[in-house]
Design a binder for these strands. Structure first.
Length: 493
RNA sequence: GUCCCCGUCGUCUAGCCCGGCCUAGGACACCGCCCUUUCACGGCGAUAACACGGGUUCAAAUCCCGUCGGGGACGCCA
């Protein structure tokens, strides 16, 4: 029976284990999403574990910002742990491994600074002498209080092979001779990532570890730890990395705020669109589906659909968001019921300083929902609905296209003033009345509508005219058209 | 340096495991046309890729070898 056949019989328990050293990273978000999808698809459990054993770098602010990102994504989890609260477990495990002779004390002073052990002449394997220290001497030095790190005693010269089958990358093998004696415990007694992670995975009965491919080679060490613990290792599934357009791993330092989840939130992405986008990076349902709501993603997800090559997330200085993410966001925006979209838009208008009531937003939403790709764009797409005074605009735009002149613009606006004063403010009445007026002036729809549109919106590109007039109301429309005629005469001749 | 992984349109990908249906499919972006009162939506169309070189085979994007290119790991960080 293969490993995957065995694990298929277990209800999956997966975990997402971010370390709180900054905001929630795009790559982490995708790892979380894939874990969530896998768990929910298979009726399993998802564990959130904060891997905070690095006291130097972990901050409470970072924990908060990770939760903030997770909350926005809107995906839930079932259990929650903090690694720092499980230190006893880790130390006991280290003890047990040491007792079995699978680890040894290394009294070499801790490395400081950046002198890299593994540069020019191949990989560093161990600190000479320490591995072979007699038990007596080791005990004596430890008893005298000399600090030491606990290192794994990786088999040497036996030609033993480490092997595991990754659900994505297939069978992986490596000679133990090529694995260094990695640390289990630091000289301050704290567990390292490798130890803490494996001990917790074992203790929490994690069945599937779905994580970034940057851990693929670390997995051999983890095999060793699980063996030392005397437990069957979980199934591993490594995900291809998300990389920047330059091909390198996304980093906060190098690539800036585009690697933070909250940047997308603030720019007006819908979480479901963002999740959809991230899923398409390194995974495919293989049926040409692109736009997918969460339910569909969950139903379709499988590890077999995960591919092995890194995925570029496209962004530039000018266009900070991947065009496909933006397109998907527009798709999700259009898929939203108007009331729901209106509620999403409300805070963006408020933040822009507009006086908005839910009713007004609800009236405006259908007019802009096909015109925005990001929620934040609603502000510039619909500003004229909310401001008291239109911002100054180019008066020349009032002049009808295709050979119109100022006199024609004036005529159109004066006619509009008369018509709008007496016409019912509903779509059909307005349509009929304004088209009729155009006919009498001998004008086509275009030349008739543009001056009016510019007068009430302050720009040429705007939502359909009649709906816009209705949303604006008679009073505002008349006022703005009157102002437009005045502007026209001021520069008219 | 050592080890590991990857390499299909500009980008995300399907096809690769189980060679022929691939004159390589879809999507985004870009360009053009149509719809239309503007913008947008929508519809239609165009451009665009199997990294390279050797094999194996009647037949290779698909199998094998090599080269090149890219990425990752190698820490008492995670």
């Amino acid at each position: 029976m293969t490993e995957s056949a065995i694990s298929a019989h277990r209800t999956p328990r997966v975990r997402f284990a971010p370390s709180p050293t900054g905001f929630l990273h795009v790559g982490s978000a995708r790892t979380f999403i894939f874990n969530w999808l896998y768990a929910r698809h298979n009726g399993g459990t998802i564990v959130l574990r904060i891997d905070d054993t690095d006291v130097e770098r972990n901050t409470e602010a970072s924990v908060q910002s990770i939760f903030e990102g997770l909350k926005w994504l809107g995906l839930d989890w079932d259990e929650e742990y903090k690694q720092s609260e499980r230190l006893d477990l880790h130390r006991e495990a280290a003890e047990a491994i040491f007792a079995k002779g699978l680890a040894y004390r290394d009294f070499t002073p801790a490395h400081v600074g950046d002198d890299n052990q593994s540069s020019a002449q191949g990989a560093w394997l161990c600190n000479p002498g320490m591995r072979d220290l007699s038990r007596e001497e080791s005990d004596r030095r430890a008893a005298s209080g000399e600090p030491f790190a606990l290192r794994s005693r990786v088999p040497r010269g036996e030609h033993s092979v480490l092997r595991f089958t990754d659900a994505v990358y297939g069978t992986q093998t490596k000679l133990t001779d090529e694995v260094e004696d990695f640390a289990l415990l630091r000289s301050d007694g704290m567990p390292t990532y490798h130890l803490a992670s494996c001990v917790d995975d074992a203790e929490l009965r994690i069945t599937h570890i779905i994580r970034g491919q940057d851990h693929l080679t670390n997995t051999f060490k983890h095999q060793l730890i699980f063996a030392g613990l005397g437990v069957e290792p979980p199934q591993f599934a490594h995900l291809p990395l998300l990389v920047a357009p330059d091909g390198t791993k996304l980093s906060k330092r190098k690539h800036g705020p585009v690697v933070s989840v909250t940047t997308y939130r603030d720019a007006g992405f819908l979480p479901q669109a963002y999740v959809n986008f991230l899923c398409l990076l390194g995974w495919s349902p293989k049926n040409d589906r692109e736009y997918m709501p969460l339910d569909e993603l969950r139903d379709l997800f499988s590890l077999e659909g995960v591919n092995r090559s890194n995925a570029v997330i496209n962004f530039t200085e000018e266009e900070p968001f991947d065009a496909k993410a933006v397109w998907l966001n527009a798709e999700h925006i259009r898929a939203l019921p108007v009331e729901v979209l209106a509620r999403e838009l409300q805070p963006f208008f408020e933040r822009a300083g507009f006086k908005v009531t839910p009713e007004k937003v609800l009236a405006v939403t259908p007019l802009i929902r096909e015109r925005i790709k990001l929620l934040s764009e609603a502000v510039s797409a619909a500003d004229f609905f909310f401001v008291d005074e239109l911002a100054p605009y180019d008066v020349a735009e009032l002049i009808p296209p295709k050979g119109g002149d100022a006199a024609m613009a004036r005529k159109v606006l004066e006619t509009a003033l008369e018509v709008l004063a007496v016409t019912n403010f509903d779509h059909d009445s307005l349509d009929q009345a304004l088209r009729g007026a155009a006919g009498q002036l001998g004008l086509k729809a275009g030349p008739m509508f543009q001056p009016i549109r510019v007068a009430v919106c302050g720009r040429k590109n705007a939502p359909p005219l009649f709906e816009t007039l209705v949303a604006l109301g008679r009073e505002v429309c008349l006022k703005r058209i009157r102002e437009a005629t005045e502007n026209l005469s001021r520069i008219g001749r």
